[in-house]
Amino acid sequence: MTKAMMALGLSLASSSALADWQVNLNQGVTEISRDIFDLHMLIFWICVVIGVGVFGVMFYSIFMHRKSKGAQAAHFHENTTVEVVWTVIPFVILIGMAIPATGTLMDMYDTSEADVDIQITGYQWKWRYQYLDEEIDFFSNLSTPREEIYNEAGKNPNYLLEVDNPLVIPAGKKVRFLITANDVIHSWWVPHFAVKKDAIPGFINESWVRVDEPGVYRGQCTELCGKDHGFMPVVVEVKPQAEYDAWVAAQRAKKAALAEAASQSYSVDELIAMGEGVLSTGHAPPVMR
């Protein structure tokens, strides 16, 4: 009981310390994410202006044209001019809105001439990243410990948005994602890239990104995919070209070492020792019971 109370206190303290009050979209770090942000703000302000107008007239009537103030009801109930005007004006506004939106959409769909091709496969409940030109292939699992999820330990700042092996991409390069799934439909989303694409079994969707600013960007699966849908985050590390190359070399070396190790023969004791290592790194998904 006391332990539970402590955990509750701990989680409350950590959540209030780390939570913020973000109310708007992120501008993001790509040209397209910024275009999308601008479209979002444009349509938002159009809505605000229309809203202020409509609700303004409505509340004016509510305050001025009330029976308790002795208001007498007028008798008009149609006016063709007014009705035509308020049908045509929204139509024109919408056309004005749709044209830039179509332009952005065309940019988003232009996946040609990519520098790096990465296949992303959704699994229940993890992501697999395969670098098509580099022979790099790994899974990316949630790394938040189950103690944090069950409130038995304080939550770290990247709670539920952290993985064991993040996707690594080079800065300033056009990276094409080939997105599919192995079981049910998932959806791969990184808000700062404005890339969200459904991962559909049997089909390959395309999307792309060019990030100039190195850093770590976090997102989540956004299509309900079963029990642990909330526990399959996306983490992308954008590295400068040199660091990316070093990372690729390291991955290759690791792969070579593995291949080397696989061709060796081991004694029982050695195998037990290695097996313990695998178990304690917690590769079993943390929420599964």
Binding site: I62, H65, S68, T87, L105
Partner: peptide
């Protein structure tokens, strides 16, 4: 996208008509 945005037009007409019904009424 275009077809969906089109729905805003008749929906807008409805809202405008409700507000115009209230306008210069005698409300309780």
């Amino acid at each position: 996208m275009f077809a969906t945005m089109l729905i805003a037009v008749p929906t807008g007409v409805k809202v405008f008509n409700w507000v115009a019904t209230m306008f210069r009424g005698s409300m309780t």
